[in-house]
């Protein structure tokens, strides 16, 4: 039997186009088996997650920027908490920001939705490890 490694679906929410480009590029270069969803603010991401059409392609892990227009990272976590019961699977959320403001760091620590606070510039291998640790269980996630 051939063991086929399944793809992890990672979601990146950031208003910085360059960061999103770079994120996708390093996933490609590092050979991380991941499918990437990207949104430029929290609102777009919430709309996607809520949409039943995409229920079969929900991410396993979300990296959300804190400082964004329209809906920032904090508001995203609130909205995420509300719609969480719809998902039918566990989705981990990481905050990702270049803010070294201790207020932001503590706020992230005290936010039950946020699993960890990753400071930009990111360590590619650290993020790769996180993504690789989310092996989707059979029957869920994308099959591409």
């Amino acid at each position: 039997m051939i063991f086929e490694r399944q793809m992890v679906t990672a979601c990146i929410i950031d208003d910085d186009d360059i960061f999103i480009y770079g994120f996708k590029k390093f996933i490609e270069i590092k050979g991380v088996f991941a499918h990437i969803l990207n949104f430029s603010n929290g609102k777009e991401a919430i709309e996607y997650l809520k949409n039943p059409n995409y229920a079969g392609n929900l991410p396993d892990v979300i990296f959300v920027d804190i400082n964004m227009p329209v809906m920032d990272g904090w508001e995203f976590t609130q909205n995420f908490e509300e719609i969480k019961p719809l998902f039918g699977k566990k989705i981990s959320v990481y905050a990702i920001s270049s803010s070294v403001d201790i207020k932001d760091i503590n706020r992230a620590k005290n936010n039950p939705v946020i699993k960890d606070y990753i400071l930009k510039p990111i360590s590619e291998s650290h993020v790769a490890d996180i993504i690789n640790s989310y092996q989707p269980r059979p029957g869920f996630g994308g099959l591409n």
Partner: peptide, 10 residues
């Protein structure tokens, strides 16, 4: 930092 971070990244 965010610019510097992006620069390093790129």
């Amino acid at each position: 930092r965010s610019h510097a971070g992006n620069l390093k990244f790129m």
